[in-house]
Design a protein around this nucleic acid. Structure first.
Length: 477
RNA sequence: GGCGCCGUACCCAAGUGGUAAGGGAGAGGUCUGCAAAACCUUUAUGCGACGGUUCGAAUCCGCCCGGCGCCUCCA
């Protein structure tokens, strides 16, 4: 089964075929850096992380570009997001941008998200953006008005092809306000004239100003990936107008198709309502990490498909935490067992190859991580069964199993990291082992009080002790 | 008003024409000094309601009910 992806542009699943053999150019809309990321951002970037990891697993050389928006994102009242935050925090907008950018990467790293190859800042690409605007002016797709430049939407016939709407449909009931400066209300700003009090300003052929929000993505994606590239991703809430406008201005500027595949991830809801900064019903990743391991958050996100909404609740994420723990403890036991010499012959009822096939079929079907996870749980159940009678297992098979989990759970899904290699053995585990040895002999003498005290004491230090068939294991809680 | 999505067990969530994955919670059991883990068994004659197409529908079509998203701030 070849990889198929759902393309928003065609509204159906298509076989994935990159423009250039073996290579994939991928651009994903990054954050506007004015406040800390929340679970919704987590879902978005975890989803695209899976896509990048999987494409790389398939052997594609992926160039992954994800922008950082630090200028030009305007509010309803026309104020720049960054400027508004800088006024609130009494800080320079670039201070905010820097702080939040760092915070963003911190959160993404915690979620075990592979960093983009390039994270271009909008303010670092003013020249490139001006170039796009100039091209649009010279070929008649844009017009200048009092120091601002607007895109003439009526000149781009295909406007609406991504979001499936027509300009005429949008007229009724929209929030579009008629600004006298624009020829048509649906036109959007490519470049805005800076008022005297506006701090973020750059010199341009049309006077001092700043770029519009949409143009940064066109300029930066084309700079690093070429005028036509493979995948453009982003949140569903950016499908319109942002992505529609990107297509309009890019294709008008170059005369070439922009992105071949458009991938949109769905949103996180809380009590059925979209989690968003403006609604204020969001949980920041930093807050979530105080209660849950970041990998639990990642796992929670992967339990639903990227194109489905995911309803966030403590109950749901706690259930996820337990599920992940089950999976992790299976892997831990497997890896502990693997170092022992084993001569058994017993394997699974269903062959590992069958499971492998089901896993990759799931991933090939529009990156269905939830289905793939289901397969991992089934393999884990069989593995546990095998390990319960470990003398029956063949060493060779256990190694194969470990390879399977490493490839699928660690490399592709990013939730089952390989145990830290014991390069620098710290004192801690040695002390714990020593303590457990003492406890073991106490148990042999039926001194249960001592044994229980040690177990209780270690639990207080967040170390969980478990007695198993031939010995005692421990893990950090 | 326009465009679009969703409704599957107590909770989360796959499945998009062949007879309901997976996780959590609950119940019973095996193992066990106790605890924990693990394993086994069990929990939806039914997928919002009603019609229709079909040998066969959660899946396709129609209508209705309920929820949500976008329509120039959002991942």
């Amino acid at each position: 089964m070849p990889l198929v992806v759902y393309n928003t542009l065609t509204r159906k699943k298509e076989e994935f075929k990159p423009l250039h053999e073996g290579r994939v150019g991928m651009y994903v809309c990054g954050p506007t850096v004015y406040s800390h990321s929340h679970i919704g951002h987590g879902k978005s970037y975890v989803s695209f992380d899976i896509i990048v990891r999987y494409l790389r697993h398939l052997g594609y050389k992926v160039m992954y570009v994800q922008n950082i928006t630090d200028v030009g994102h305007l509010l309803d009242d026309g104020e720049d997001r960054m400027l508004k935050q800088s006024r609130i925090d009494k800080a320079h907008p670039m201070q905010i941008a820097e702080t939040i950018t760092r915070s963003y990467f911190e959160d993404m790293d915690a979620l075990n998200i592979v960093r983009p190859d390039i994270s271009p800042r909008a303010t670092g690409h003013i020249i490139e953006q001006i170039e796009v605007v100039k091209r649009l002016l010279s070929n008649g797709h844009a017009y200048e008005m009092n120091g601002s430049v607007y895109f003439d939407v009526r000149k781009f016939k295909a406007y609406g092809k991504l979001s499936g709407r027509s300009i005429d449909d949008m007229k009724e009931g929209t929030r579009v306000e008629v600004k006298s400066e624009k020829r048509n209300p649906e036109d959007f700003a490519l470049w805005k004239k800076a008022e005297p009090e506006h701090i973020m300003r750059w010199q341009s052929p049309w006077g001092e100003g700043f770029p519009g929000w949409h143009v940064e993505c066109s300029a930066m994606s084309m700079k690093y990936l070429g005028e036509t590239f493979d995948i453009h991703g982003g949140g569903l809430d950016n499908q319109f107008p942002h992505h529609e406008c990107e297509i309009a201005q890019s294709e008008s500027a170059t005369g070439k198709p922009f992105a071949k595949y458009w991938i949109h991830n769905n949103l996180v809801t809380a009590n059925g309502q979209k989690m968003s900064k403006s609604l204020g019903n969001f949980v920041t990743l930093k807050d979530a990490f105080k209660k849950f391991d970041p990998i639990v958050v990642r796992f929670f996100i992967l339990q639903s498909h990227y194109r489905s909404t995911l309803d966030f609740s403590e109950q749901a994420i706690e259930a996820a935490a337990k599920g992940l723990e089950k999976l992790q403890s299976t892997i831990e036991r497997l890896r502990a067992e693997i170092v022992k010499e084993q001569n058994g012959i017993v394997q699974f009822v269903e062959s590992l190859e069958e499971y492998r096939k089901r896993f990759f079929d799931a991933m090939n079907d529009d990156f269905s991580a939830p289905l793939a996870l289901g397969v991992l749980f089934e393999v884990a159940r069989e593995t546990n069964e095998l390990l319960a009678n470990s003398q029956n297992a063949s060493h060779e098979f256990l190694v194969k199993l470990n390879e399977f989990f490493t490839l699928t759970g660690d490399q592709i899904l990013g939730i089952l990291s390989e145990k830290q290699t014991a390069g620098e053995q710290s004192l801690e585990p040695q002390l714990i082992d020593l303590l457990l040895k003492v406890r073991g002999s106490a148990r042999q003498r039926n001194e249960w009080r001592t044994a229980d005290d040690i177990r209780k004491g270690l639990k207080g230090l967040r170390i969980e002790v478990q007695d198993i068939k031939d010995g005692t294991t421990w893990k950090k809680a």
